[in-house]
Amino acid sequence: MATVKELKATARPSVGKGAARAERRAGKVPGVIYGNNQPPLPISVNDRELRQRILAGRFLTTVYEIELDGKKHRVIPRDFHLDPVRDFPIHVDFLRLGEGATIRVSVPLHVIKAETSPGVKRGGTVNIVTHALDLECSVDNIPQFIDADVGELEISHSLHLSDVKLPTGVKSLAREDITLVTIVPPSGYAEEQRAAAASAAAAGGAAAPPAGAAAPAAAAPAAAPAAGAKAPAAGAKAPAGGDKKK
């Protein structure tokens, strides 16, 4: 959840492009605090400290406390601009937070349990489709990230927004059930699946008898001669028909 960190800043006495350039030459980054029905407050932040905070990650989802002239301002960064050539911060905006305020933030997606995914074990690759989620929550309940558990995903399966449990009091701003993560099949996987299916079909067809074919009838065994009977002598003639007894 949200953690409040301190950030050093000083009030900026003058505004405008010339004053902003002077602040940058002095090793400071011009900025402004606005919102909560109060007038904008021009400030300057130490260049080195601001760079460290940005490079540390989660800068736009971290609540800061800035003290100016004995007064503390609870803020959250809303935007920062980088020099297009040298890539260092040249301006930063902070939103002043009121008590119990609700804000919209973009929170990064954190993929977990990829090493136990059956799809990954079979050679698949984790493909993060959505890198951050747009959420609405109170300033005291800002998640640092949202966990996306892919531990049970198979190859070609996906994890959607409806599969993820958001923290209590946090609402997604997405209008549909977006895809978050998919397991991409390895190279040649589709061809292997087709070849395996063809082999299985061929093996099943060879083993099955033709439809409607009758089983071959068993040959009737020859009658065995009676026990003790003698075979007729060679050359013996059968008795003539009509022979009468005298």
Rank of each mutant, 00 (worst) to 15 (best):
D69N: 08
L153D: 02
P216F: 11
P13C: 04
V181Y: 00
H81T: 14
R74E: 02
L95R: 15
V120Y: 08
F80A: 01
A197M: 10
A214E: 15
N127V: 09
H157Y: 06
L109N: 06
Q144A: 12
D163E: 09
G16K: 03
F80H: 07
K72G: 06
A213I: 14
L109G: 09
A201T: 11
G228W: 09
D134S: 15
A211F: 13
A218M: 12
G188K: 01
A56D: 10
G212M: 11
A207D: 15
P210F: 13
L7V: 03
A226S: 10
T102I: 13
D93K: 03
D83T: 05
K246T: 09
K5N: 11
G205D: 12
T102C: 08
K171Y: 06
K171T: 04
H110V: 05
G27R: 03
R194M: 08
F88P: 04
K71F: 02
T130M: 05
D83Y: 07
V126G: 05
R51C: 12
P221R: 05
P185R: 00
A219I: 12
G205T: 10
P210H: 13
A234C: 06
R25E: 04
G228E: 12
K165S: 11
A234I: 01
A223Q: 15
V139N: 04
L135E: 03
T61W: 01
A132L: 05
A190Y: 09
T61I: 02
T125H: 09
N141A: 03
A233S: 05
A203L: 12
E154I: 04
V120M: 12
V129H: 09
A200D: 11
